[in-house]
Amino acid sequence: MNPAWHALPWLLAIAFYFTAGGYLSLGTSILVYILLTLSLDLALGYAGIITLGHAAFFGFGAYGAALFAIHVNADPLLGLVVATAVTAVFAVVTGMLILHTQGVTLLMLTLAIAVLLAEAANRAYKVTGGDDGLQFTMGPVLGLFRFDLWGQTAYLYTLVILFVWFVIAWKVVHSPFGRSLDGIRQSQARMRAIGTPVWWRLIAIYAISAAMAGSAGALSAQTTRFVGLNTLGLLVSGIAVVMLVLGGTRRLYGAFLGAAVYVVVQDFAAKVNPFYWMFVIGGLLMATVLFLEGGLMEVLDIGRRWLRRLLRGSDPT
């Protein structure tokens, strides 16, 4: 791929900052969703871990960041790092329990973990605020940039963190470790036969993915200064999978496209009618699965090829 293409999404994100106006907070939530979807791409897309429980990590990170800000320190970066780390530890523990299973059993176990965590958070209302959620204040980023009313700091802060995670994800999937995940997805038995420690590899990628999802949750809590039980809900897990497949799995940039299209479509359709968006998203999903297995990235690929042919056609050399 031409390196210039890599700059495109980031340039668009920066351009959005200057042109968004009142939509900047919507932009921030898109960035948070991109990070969540990206994390799912590592676990589900590359390693083939079928999960409907990523909301557990998203919510764990969100509550972690909120509780850290309230009880320990209001510094955003410190809170983010701590929330990310504890989410990773949580993922290692749960991953060790469940990652020897596959298919529907694994799906149900990830689902059960998310439900258990949501119920626990609901019951421990003295700590988590229960249905009311937690509202808190954050200190300035790096001690310099306050979270302002227009969400400018929030947007740029989220964008920078997303970029850092994207670079990490890119390095991971293009490393020998990432290639071995490809093999594990295609056939665990064969990878085991050539001596790959499948279980450990799965735990490792599960932890990385969960840390990323935890970061996304922490960012969502920090930028809105609020965390509620919905961060742990089944809908979050479901939406993350939807955004990933809509955009295209195993592409990394698919997360960008899927999350952006999903949030924008939902926002517009919900304005027409509060239930209309379910119709649109449902239809979009079915169409994607039936006709566009590579997701929206495939449309982009077709467009790029067409563009190249057009350029070559006009160029006499």
Partner: peptide, 10 residues
């Protein structure tokens, strides 16, 4: 999962 999830939404 996705196809039937979409169908449920519809």
């Amino acid at each position: 999962v996705l196809m039937t999830f979409g169908l449920t939404f519809v």
